[in-house]
Design a protein around this nucleic acid. Sequence first.
RNA 1: GGUCAAUUAGCUCAGCUGGUUAGAGCGCAUGAUUCACAUUCAUGAGGUCGCAGGUUCGAAUCCUGCAUUGACCACCA
Length: 711
Amino acid sequence: MSKKPLAKKYEPKETEKAIYSAWEEAGYFNPDRLPKDLCSEKAKPFTIVLPPPNITGSLHMGHALNATIQDVLIRYYRMKGYRTLWVPGLDHAGIATQNMVEKELAKSGKTRHDVGRAELLKLLKDWEKKYSLRIISQFKRIGASCDWSRTHYTLDEGYSRAVKKAFILYKRKGYIKRGQRVVNWCPRCKTALSDIEVEHKEDKGKLYYIKYRLLKRKKDKRFEYLTIATTRPETLLGDTAVAVNPEDKRYKRYVGRKIFIPLIKRKVKVIEDSAIDPKFGTGALKVTPAHDGKDFEIGERHGLKRINVIDEEAEMIGSIPLKYRGLDRFKAREKVVEDLRKEKILVKVESIKHKTPYCYRCGEMIEPLISKQWFLSMKKLAEPAIKLIKDDKIKFVPYRFKKVYLRWMKEIHDWCISRQIWWGHKIPIKNEEDVLDTWFSSALWPFASLGWPQKTKDLQTFYPTSVLSTAKDIIFLWVARMIFSGLFFMDEIPFHTVYVHPTILNAEGKRMSKSLGTGIDPLDLVEKYGADATRFGLVAKTGHNQEIRYSESSIVAGRNFSNKMLNATRFVLMNIEKNKIKSLKIDNKIFLDKKIIKLKANKKTIDLFAKTKTEIEKRILDFRFNLATKAIYEFFWHQFCDKCIEANKDVLYQGDELDRKKTLEFLITIIANSLKLTHPFMPFVTEHLWTELNKALEIKEKPLIVSHWPN
RNA sequence: GGUCAAUUAGCUCAGCUGGUUAGAGCGCAUGAUUCACAUUCAUGAGGUCGCAGGUUCGAAUCCUGCAUUGACCACCA
């Protein structure tokens, strides 16, 4: 048998891919194929559903971090003997993916309407194929031990059946209704969006003060005016009232009177509504029910007419003066302002900062308009989902996110679930061309990815899932919706714990962004330092903090640590070889050996090992991974290598044969146990060293991934 | 307008429920090393823990206020 000494340096590239394939082929990621002595049929399940990445592109640092966190949990629980299942999958990501393909199309000067629905869908399918393969291979590269035999995709046939079923069940119970309401319309994507798909950005804008003339009554001697303030003067073409706050004494005398909309001389009423803020502008609001959510509601309360003056392309339409018709909304604004000036009723223009709504996918400015859409009524669905979280039936980690969730849930609005795009699940109603919001399908993920609506064995065994690990920006878009969906369809929570991991910022403390080129590709890091180092470096910064500033030095530290483990192992193996010692055992009984304990450094190492093990377990359970990695790093490097190995060198070089043997057995046992503790964080190097160790000792042990966590 | 978080060594951050000389990694300085590892080892310099009050025998840690930064929420017309 040829024994090749370990290389001085750990070379991840050579080992990681081979190790991953070996695990996968052996079926260790599949709970049904775990070795029986590790995990019996009756073992408790531990389930995670992977937040399915969008097929829009490749993985970013956030994915890498989240994959690592979930893998740490899965690997830990697997070694603890749980029936672990990590369900992977992909999300078709409706608007986002369609936009990517449309962008490609735009390069040849075409729009989706030029090529048509069938052709666009074909392009989307190609995209889907390309990126889903890439994303999966990236997850594998980072070491994610997902059960790929259970991979789901939100547009798969089975999954689509679940989506259809969900829609029908909601509708049957009266939760889904169709109606005309003001929705957030993206004139570029040409679709409605839900409220949370709108991003508000602070802009420098202008507040225009415009004089509206009141209708002269017989008793009036001269004309009276009421000045209103608006940031969108072009919408006055659709005004159907002017409103003031009922408490506002300044305007009390105007309430009920007729007033003229400038430029078009439409006669409307001055009404009072408590939604008006007397402190904003002049305290008088022009009401445009067709083009503003708040105005729409005021209109509902007062039975106002809705006049559409802006269409789905954000161009002016309807019964308005010809000169405005067909103008783009911003051109129309200029024109209206110009005309107001001419009529000398533009009192003043004020520069203000205000929040403007933008499409979260393409960045176009939202145009609120009335449209016929499908809505999911939220109030009743939200009730149990609020109570549950209040009672901590689902635990948020860090705990503060409970509050974030509750605040949103309590103020929830109906969810506009229809989209006027082509990529997604068609609404299961005859003659309906719209598709469902992509989040409607991902809301079903925890149970639909386990086979729902069929009563599968997986669903029975693995639902509710254990932990959901996710980014904080999708607490509302996704987490909240999984919770009420789970309660509605399964009558049970979808997961016990929600872990909200920190956001990775770049070295300057800014958000990593692909478009700005400030992103870092985790796969580059994996290539450069290895998957273990990348994982370690990321997780070592992850606790209950809300952000991580990316720094390569922690990944370098991870790489150095894996090299340190290799060299400690190498040292011991070299000594075994040198001393020609046979039949060494890895056995914790050596910790009780009097001769071993006599050496202070050994005693301390044994004690610290126990403490380290407890600390790691505790820190995995409370999601303070940074402290877990710190514990193993400190123990292995600064106690075991720096102190313990050094202290044993005298015995190894000058001791008698029995002492040498005992010492090597002790060192090898500490190493073996340390490899186990480190495995969830650095699976590859630990597995690699475990193999080398077993080879050298000529013992046959199962791979580390399915070995028992130390007692 | 509201909510949440952060503020500790040159840089990036730990420091859990208050308790002896405040820690790590990187960087820096000095030295070591044919004997596992220069992706190494040893030693060291460097902090009045954002500011101001308060509670306490005792506060980086708890409370109040303020400042700065960041994130989120809201129909800021």
